[in-house]
Each structure stands twice: as C-alpha cells, then as structure tokens.
Design a protein around this nucleic acid. Structure first.
Lengths: 206, 206
DNA sequence: ATGATCTTAAACTGAGCAGTTCAGTTGTCG
DNA sequence: CGACAACTGAACTGCTCAGTTTAAGATCAT
C-alpha cells in the first residue's frame, strides 16, 4: 500500500501545509496571514513549512494553483445537449453567480485583485484557470449554438464576455464593496433573467 | 480675503496631508503605505498628521471621500439634450471606461476591494460616491429617455447596472488580474460599441 | 509685541512578523 | 538494533511600522 500516491513533492506533511495555508489565506488575505498562524492551522512546525516553501509568496502561489486545479475539475460538466439556448444560458448564469457570490469566490477575487499589482504571477495564474477557462467554455458553446442556427453572433468571444458581465450586474459590486451582507434569491433571479433576456434580445434568432 | 474657504476642518496643512496621503496610498496601497512615508510626501510632521486624523484608517477614508467628490465634480456634465440615446450612451460608456482603465481608477478599486473585508466603511464610502452615484445618474437618464419614448425599459435601475457591466466586458478582468499592460483604442471601441448595440437591441424602440 | 494655537523633528514604545537556528523527538527502513 | 531522515518547538534575530511624547520653533490674531 503506497500511502504517498498523492504527494508528488517531498515530505509527508505537504498537503497539510497547503490545506492550512489555504484556510488562513482565505480568512486573512495575503498580508494578513502570518506564517505562524498558517503553521498552526496546518498542524505543522514553522521549520517544516519553510523546508517546503522558501518564502511566503511562493507558498501562496502554490496554494492558489492547487485551488484553481481543484475548481477546474469541479466545473467540467457544462454544456448539455437537449436544451434550448435560453435554458443553457440560464444554467451557466446560475453557476457563475453561485461561484462569485460564494465565500470562496469572493475571497479569492479579493486577494488576487489586491496582490496582482505586486505579484503579477498570482493574478495571471488565477485568471488563466478561472475566468479565462470559463470564458473559453462559454465562447465555444456559443460557437456551436451559432452553427446550429440557435443564435446569431459575429464575435463569440465578445458575446461570452458580455454575458459574464451581465451576470454580475448590481450583485457583484455590492459584494465587492461589502454593501450588503445578504443577497436574496429574488435579487439573483432578477439579474439572471435580465441577463438572459438581454442576451437573447441581441443574439437570439431574428 | 478669507484664505480658509476650502479648509472647513482645522489647521492650515490639512490639504497638504490629504494630497500626500493620496499619492502614497495610490502608489503603495493601504497596508503598503507607511505613515512616515505619507508625512514625508505631505511635507508635514507625523505629529501634525496625527493631530488631524486619529488613525491611518480614518485618514484613508477621508482621502477616498475627497477624491470621490473631486471625480463627481468632473463628471457632472452627463446628459446633454440634443443627442440620440445611442449617442448619449456611447458618451457615457466612454467616460466610464476611461475612468476604470485609468491608473487612478484601477488603484482605487484595488485598494477598496482588498480592504472592504476588514474595513467595511472604506468599501461603503467609496461605493456611495463612486459607482452608486454613476448608477443613479445613468438610471435617471434612462428614466427620462423612457418618458420621451426613446427607450422601452421596465426596470431602469437594472438596465443601468447592466449597461455599466457591459462596458467592463473583457477589459476590466484583464486589468484587474494584470494580464495586459496596454489596452488599445480598438479594443475599447469594440467593447463600447458592443455594449451600446446590445443595450439598444434590448431596450431600443420596437 | 504677546499669547494662543499650530507645527516640527526626533526619539521612543510596543507590537507584530518573516525567516533562522538548534537541540531534541519521532518514525521508517534495512 | 541502529542509522537516517523528517519533524518539532521554542527561542532568537532583525526589521518595519503605528502611534506617542516632548521640548522647542513658527504663525497668527489682536
């Protein structure tokens, strides 16, 4: 029985460190997370932590990458066949909104935006396996829908970006600037329906 | 001659402090900006600074508010009469994009998003005299356009939010995650035209 | 000019934090 | 068993920074 199957790197406690670091970074942000707190949360000594990661920034990048990959796995199921464009778009919208309103989505976004200035690698690596991935998936769905004659779109990439943005209307700024603590399902439905209506008005069959 | 017309608070060096703090906060972010650096940039002693603002957080809030008001003044000229809805919307879109792509807009956003978690007042106060203000202005323009029969909108507030988001498509995420250092005028035009086209397709006269 | 108020420089306090070191413990494997 | 590697905890270094204090200097109104 090989117990090291999931530890491609060195040392038995690698995963523990990543997990603990993830928790603390999410809770406190990058600057706010002390390495002592991370070590404590990971149930590991600071010395061990530093034997894996030469510094805090590197640890953060590794944590971010790990979480991105995890997310990417979760989100594979996207386009289903027997659905109208309207249904599919509504579905996608729900997924997107649920993610960016989640505690996780919110915190990730906050940290990345804050640190993207100082550490471009962080922003880039997150964008690529987060928004960029979703972006390409939506665009490729639209491409197919156009081929089937369900939609009429000249610039599918732009259309995908527009749709993603429409799903953020009102809700996203309110979250980001911490205006509301709770957002109701009605508010969400209003925005999603608004997004789909608008999208179909522009790109729906004539 | 009353030289204190623009200093409703106490002390002659108030404006200097705000100005210096603004510069350093913009350059370094909230955590990154040391009070010593701010005092130096403002050409003022730390003691003086602390006689105005009891702590760093309060100083930041005041700086953010001041800058918001300055922006609000700049943006008063919004709705002009003899223009079509299309023209007016394009105009508004240009203004918005120019702002959030500017160095200033970008940095303010970054700081507010990062700190809104820890200090809700920061996020709130910025939102209120920034996005919220613009939001209400656009909504009220739409209201009038509907009254004149130029547009057909049921939920003007939602429409305003949608328009604002459409203007961010592609460009905004790329900025936030630091993917591109430069964005061309063509890319901007593509997004703005796309936003106006979509908006008119949905809410334009039948 | 005189007193009140504002400003200054610089030293100081107290705290937090990244990263290091090391003597000692634990677990693994031949 | 014995050797080797990973791990621990706790103390320690060196730094940065928010906020305070003090004694002296500048500015202003009257």
């Amino acid at each position: 029985m090989n117990k090291h199957a999931s530890s491609p790197k060195k040392g038995r406690k690698y995963d523990q460190v990543i997990e603990g670091a993830w928790q603390v970074f999410m809770r406190e942000g990058f600057e706010g997370a002390s390495v002592d707190a991370i070590a404590r949360a990971a149930g590991v000594s600071k010395a061990t932590l530093y034997s894996y990661f030469s510094d805090k920034k590197l640890l953060f990048i590794e944590v971010a990458r790990t979480e991105c990959l995890r997310q990417a796995d979760t989100a594979i199921v996207m386009g289903q066949s027997g659905q109208s464009a309207r249904e599919t778009l509504t579905n996608m919208a729900q997924r997107m909104v649920r993610f960016y309103l989640s505690d996780l989505g919110q915190r990730v976004f906050r940290i990345c935006v804050a640190e993207a200035d100082r550490f471009p690698e962080i922003g880039r690596s997150f964008y690529e396996c987060g928004p960029e991935l979703a972006r390409r998936r939506v665009a490729s769905y639209l491409q197919e829908a156009v081929a089937r004659g369900e939609l009429m779109i000249e610039d599918c990439q732009l259309a995908a970006d527009q749709f993603a943005e429409l799903c953020k209307a009102d809700l996203f700024p309110r979250m980001m600037f911490n205006i509301t603590d709770h957002i109701t399902q009605d508010e969400i439905d209003r925005v999603i329906n608004g997004a789909v209506d608008m999208f179909m008005a522009r790109y729906g069959p004539a």
